[in-house]
Write a protein that binds this DNA or RNA. Sequence first.
RNA 1: UGUCCUGUGGUGUAAUUGGCAACACGUCUGACUCUGAAUCAGAAGAGUUUAGGUUCGACCCCUAACAGGACAACCA
Length: 564
Amino acid sequence: MKENTTPEPKASLNFLEQIITNDLENNTTSGKVHTRFPPEPNGYLHIGHAKSICLNFGLAQKFNGKCNLRFDDTNPTKEEQEYVDSIKEDVRWLGFDWEDREYYASDYFEQLYQFAVHLIKKGKAYVCEMTAEEISANRGTPAIPGKESPWRNRGVEENLDLFDRMRKGDLPDGSHVLRAKVDMASPNMHMRDPVMYRIMHAHHHRTGNDWCIYPMYDWAHGQSDYLEGITHSICTLEFEVHRPLYEWFLNELDLPNLKPRQIEFARLNLSYTIMSKRKLLTLVQEGLVNGWDDPRMPTISGLRRRGFTPASIRMFADRVGVAKRENVIEVGLLEHCIREDLNKNAPRAMAVFNPVKLIIDNYPEGHSEELPSPVNPEDPDSGHRMLPFSKNLVIEREDFMEDPPKKFFRLAPGAEVRLKSAYIIRCDYVVKDEQGEVTEIHCTYFPETKSGLPSDKKVKGTLHWVCPEHAVEAEVRLYDRLFKVSDPEEVEEGEDFRVHLNPESLKVVKAIVEPSVKDAIAGKHYQFERNGYYVVDKDTQPGNLVFNRIVPLRESWVNTEKNK
RNA sequence: UGUCCUGUGGUGUAAUUGGCAACACGUCUGACUCUGAAUCAGAAGAGUUUAGGUUCGACCCCUAACAGGACAACCA
């Protein structure tokens, strides 16, 4: 008998999932999966971090493990509580929960100190009195070995004493550092006696003035991972060369428990976007955008204000995948993800941006009626909203052409179109001003074609419209990509990314919108039919609606016209 | 001219571990449509950077070359 077995839906695993699956099968982590998202609270999170968040929390979810939120706060001069707060808000907004596992590298300062003492006693760390410049000069280059510090071989007791004095605050900033004793001739620069502690008489946002020595990233990170029982420490590619040091510390510490493993992946790059924290900060500081949450910013707070949903960003992170090769994702994918989400979930509304009067000559003067229209045709349970209709309407100027090309499905003299959820109309004549600009379009409507009634009359086009008498006016911020070019980093000699800023990334216009949106509150999403997806901005005041355009609808007609 | 990492359609990710390349976005047709959206049907587009080698058989293993990237903060 022939088995008609349904093929196993063997979802292919990305390389991280494969590693974890192997570790689980070989029991190398005693069946545990524990990840962490370790931001430094020195700036706002961006879409690249979102990828990392989705990865770390997602992996934990998928393998029944846990994911910690850990602030890598080892540099008090750069870190602030404000950033801690914004990071927590963003992670939560994305839909992830670290439960009670909110940790800080600064929680481990004492333990780290004890670990360091252990290394000193083993003869694997020493206090060095060279200046930063001297250390740098003696480190050599990637191709040339470094020179050993003159303090490299001082005795354990002396090291212990000096390290103690460093901690006590006896010694001024920059005068001493604790260094790991590894290998000044290593081809890996990070192994050339890296600094573990520096003296900084600085106030820390959590430990206050308890400490005046602070651990370096390499010293703090792996040990923090260990203390939290992290099994898979996932980070970006630039830390690849740090991995030997990460492992060296863990090994030299003679630790009893399971040691974490560092695995690197390629960070996210987006076309038409910059991702560097420093450059984003420049945009904010120079007022080239309106703050970290400017809707043109790739920050999570910017995307949120722009109107992106958590689901759309999670979907994006999922479709982008993970690997180790450098990549540039097309912004189009992000736009596709928000359209997919909002198409299913956003209520529809009609809004006219560039109005021209449309007068229905055979519709009774002074009369009006209310016509139902589905809130969201993709969602049968969404119900209907009512659209006021009368003799005097407005439509989009670009929906009328006096002398249209053959495939123009919209309004033209003698042409017939449907007004969405209302009637079919025919254009009879237009009125123009002295400049020849059309000021009024006069039409005849056909009562028997009322929406919902069976009618044999067919038309090619459907237009959105608004009855101004019953509409609300809104401010609309039309956002476009911040940069004109796909790769803003690519510049001529002497220029920088600013030359690629798109001067038209924001246009503020007015729109006439159907009354159903009148009381919408900030964060509410809409699809303006035949136009795009919008969100109510937080600048909205009673009586002053403000919308942000998230992304326009796809427009294949525009494309085919352009390609001609 | 050091070490390490990475090279698969336009973009990104796969190919169940060696059995002649799949999926998504994008693009292009066509159908449908009271959103030129969505949806549906279909098409084009890579022979896997190159050259050798192992093998009956290579995207996958080996060697070399080439290309891109990372690394010389008391940043993370």
